[in-house]
Every structure is written in C-alpha cells, then in structure tokens.
C-alpha cells in the first residue's frame, strides 16, 4: 500500500481510538500505561513501515504525518468546533472542595486521582483545600487551591 495512504489511515485510526478511549486512558499515570504506550508505538511503527526500511519511505511517512497534523491544526484554528470534536474540552471535576460524582464517574476520575494531583502540584492534604480540579485535554488534572490553603 502507498505509504501516504498508510500514514493517513494510521493517523486517523489512532486519533479515533484515543478519542474514544477517553482522556484518562493512557494519560501515563502508571508505569504500566507508559509501557502500554510504548508497545502501541512499536506496533504502529511496524504497520507504518512494514518490510520497507528505505529512507524514501521514512521521509514520505514523516512528511505525511506532519502534513496531516498541520492540516488538522489549521482546520482547528479556523473552526473551533472541529477542535472540540477532535480534542474535547476541559471538565471541572471538583468544585469548592467537593468531588462532582457524576462528572468524575463518567470521565473515570477518582477522588484518589484528584488528591494525588493536589499533593504533587500544591502539596495539599485534603479535598476541602481544593477550589477547582479540572480534567485537562491531555488527561492531566489541574488543581486550583482555595486561597486559605495556599
């Protein structure tokens, strides 16, 4: 198969699968998830290159992947709706020290995940010290502490 078509198919498939799996999947929260990500990249590399290890194919594939990504970023820049479809939008999971149960359950964020982020970033001890916790586009959790907790 033509490497350009192969590159486009792999790019679109990965984007679809990662979007469907949700922000928290493969957010590299555990060493196992990091290993899983490495395995996926290895499998992807084999599907992209196949038996053809020529420099020409590598150059074509790199150009294809960068080209598709550039095209998508231009479309996202022009049409914000497309950005929301492909990348989603941030979501508040803790407000005023309370875990928003339905939001966190649907986005698969646990209280432990929020507390871990709170400890790592701000050295907070309890949930009630958090003003907002936001699940960001890349799957990480941003913590905004209450002013009294700073």
């Amino acid at each position: 198969m033509n490497p350009v078509i192969r590159g486009i198919i792999i790019y679109l498939f990965l984007m679809l699968v990662f979007r469907l799996s949700g922000k928290r999947t493969l957010a590299q929260t555990t060493p196992f998830e990091l290993v899983l990500l490495l395995i996926i990249s290895e499998v992807t590399q084999q599907a992209l290159v196949g038996e053809d290890y020529s420099i020409t194919t590598s150059l074509i594939l790199i150009t294809t992947l960068i080209g598709v990504d550039l095209l998508f970023s231009m479309i996202k820049h022009k049409w914000k709706g497309f950005e929301k479809i492909t990348e989603g939008s941030p979501l508040i999971v803790v407000a005023d020290g309370k875990l928003l149960q339905n939001r966190s359950r649907k986005s698969r964020v646990s209280e432990e995940d929020v507390l871990e982020a709170a400890r790592n970033i701000h050295g907070l001890e309890r949930l009630d010290q958090i003003k907002y916790a936001v699940l960001e586009l890349d799957g990480t959790i941003s913590i905004i502490p209450k002013e009294s907790a700073v």
């Binding site: 941030p90 979501l91 508040i92 339905n102 939001r103 907002y132």
Partner: peptide, 17 residues
C-alpha cells in the same frame, strides 16, 4: 451531570461532553 458556576476562563461545553 452537575452544573457548576465558576469564575474560571474555561469553556467546558458540558453538552458536548
């Protein structure tokens, strides 16, 4: 899904979620 009134400069797009 809970509705949150917040002062963050953040477009949540809850319906889209």
């Amino acid at each position: 899904v809970e509705t949150v009134r917040h002062k963050l400069q953040l477009d949540e797009s809850l319906e889209q979620h």
